[in-house]
Design a protein around this nucleic acid. Structure first.
Length: 483
DNA sequence: CGAGTTTGACCGGCGC
DNA sequence: GCGCCGGTCAAACTCG
């Protein structure tokens, strides 16, 4: 904008005819006819003092040359500014393009899935949509309680939020993704309700409100219902500190675990879709597992920002990876040798209904608090690039013993979706935003020991909202275990 | 008295 | 179709 303003000023200096200097400039440097006119005027006024006129002409020429040089300099400056602006514009365009391409891939894949489902339904004798289908359609990324799903403006609001929110790139991406997920709400089978729901919450699938959302937006969905990011850590406290306010809305005894699983929802804002599950490990009750899902639709306190970013980024990466499949996989493989490996043990689990990233903080053989432990089940190590581990840059993961890696992520492969997990892993590994957020989150966790307040885990530092959440992100779930 | 927690009921998905 | 399971709801209860 400033550039154009300057350009306009420039033009005003050159072209206007009112100002005497402008006229002279035009005469001397732009239009020969004008020069003649000037000379004629001088000649008419005094035919005797030609030398003086020559001197004046010389002076004028000198002035014009000076002015011309000045204009050249100005022109250079303006060109320089234009170049900078162009570069910035190109960068932004590139980022936008990448985001759109990613989105397009998601849409493509979702569309394929939907088409397949459609075909499958066509094969079925009864043309009526199954109850599953209906219920799935009802799944709304947004919370079942606060927001009016039927409000057509809602999606627009989200879009606006994406474009307006002055948050970091990751947040923007998250919002875009969430928004995207919201639009792709239409699903046809139970196996596919993922994206829309993921974007917003563990909202009750029962909610009938969501129905027409699907009908309106018949967009293919992502194979994944939800994306979860998990962290395990040792903690005597019932909850970990994540900077958010939570309200317990349920507790259940999970099968295979004597410890009850508690369900919390974020109460920092009405209608915030973020939920979390808290459960102690059956084997080691000192290990607390906290699972987050969804993205906050409200500003977050500093203490909660890292976690929210991690959740959003993880969800985004999971969904992104899930949609890029082979492409991402191969790409990631190629990237592995160049990724700076950080010090975290992350586990991607595909066996669960939802893709889950588990960060195991329960063991830290390495002094580095960011050291994560390898997952319990069969796992394949993958590089998780954390910017905070420069010492590992250039070290192929496979050449470094886990103990020597401050950050040793691993992929826990489930019985199925192996390729998906690999894809997700690749996407995560190659996404600096996620790693940055992850590092920040881990640091945050480590730095903010939590009290045992069972009523809520409000963080003392949670008073100042600083960061808008990413309501648009496809749901993500982060599981935390605190020490 | 309001906010948060507890807890049994309810619902839908899913496997058999 | 049935039962199990995970997740949510909501009335009752607790606490400050």
């Amino acid at each position: 904008m400033d550039f154009f303003g300057a350009q306009n000023n420039h033009n005003l200096q050159v072209e206007p005819h009112n100002h005497p200097q402008d006229q002279e400039r035009k005469i001397g440097s732009v239009t020969p006819t004008a020069v003649n006119t000037g000379l004629n005027l001088l000649a008419l006024n005094s035919t005797v003092q030609r030398p003086i006129n020559d001197d004046k002409t010389q002076t004028q020429l000198s002035e014009l040359q000076v002015e011309l040089e000045r204009l050249h300099d100005e022109n250079r400056n303006l060109r320089s500014m234009l170049g900078q602006i162009t570069r910035k514009h190109s960068d932004l365009q590139g980022q936008l393009l990448m985001a759109m391409q990613r989105r397009g891939r998601e849409n493509q894949r979702e569309h394929q899935v939907r088409e397949n489902q459609r075909e499958h339904q066509m094969d079925e004798v009864n043309g009526m949509p199954s109850p599953k289908f209906s219920s799935r359609q009802l799944m709304d990324p947004r919370p079942s309680t606060g927001l009016d799903v039927n409000d057509p403006i809602d999606s627009d609001d989200k879009t606006q939020e994406v474009s307006v929110s002055p948050t970091n790139t990751m947040e923007v991406m998250s919002k875009e993704r969430e928004n995207h997920a919201y639009h792709i709400g239409g699903k046809q089978t139970a196996s596919e309700d993922g994206p829309d729901q993921t974007s917003q919450s563990w909202g009750s699938p029962k909610s009938p409100k969501l129905d027409h959302v699907k009908s309106e937006d018949q967009v293919p969905e992502v194979p994944f219902r939800k994306a979860r990011v998990s962290v395990r850590a040792r903690s005597e406290a019932p909850l970990i500190s994540d900077g958010c306010q939570w309200r317990k809305y349920g507790q259940k005894m999970a099968k295979g675990n004597p410890c009850p699983r508690a369900y919390y929802r974020c109460t920092m804002a009405v209608g915030c879709p973020v939920r979390k599950q808290v459960q102690r490990c059956a084997d080691d009750k000192t290990i607390l597992t906290t699972t987050y899902e969804g993205n906050h639709n409200h500003p977050l306190p500093p203490a909660a920002t890292a976690m929210a970013n991690t959740t959003s980024a993880a969800a985004a990466m999971l969904l992104s990876g899930s949609t890029t499949s082979k492409e991402a996989l191969t790409t990631s493989s190629g990237l592995f040798p160049f990724i700076p490996y950080a010090s975290t043990m992350a586990t991607l689990s595909a066996s669960a209904p939802f893709p889950t990233i588990t960060l195991d903080l329960t063991q830290s053989p390495n002094p580095n608090p960011l050291h994560f432990q390898r997952g319990p089940s069969s796992s394949v190590p993958f590089p998780l690039p954390l910017h905070g581990s420069p010492q590992l840059i250039g070290h192929p993961l496979y050449n470094i013993p886990p103990k020597q890696l401050p950050l040793m992520p691993a992929v826990q492969l489930g019985p199925r979706h192996n390729s998906m997990v690999e894809t997700v892993t690749a996407a995560i590994a190659s996404d600096p935003n996620f790693t940055a957020a992850l590092a920040a989150a881990i640091s945050s966790i480590i730095a903010t020991p939590r009290s045992n307040d069972s009523k809520n885990n409000n963080d003392p530092s949670s008073g100042v909202p600083v960061l808008p959440g990413s309501p648009q992100l496809p749901q993500s779930c982060t599981t935390f275990s605190t020490n």
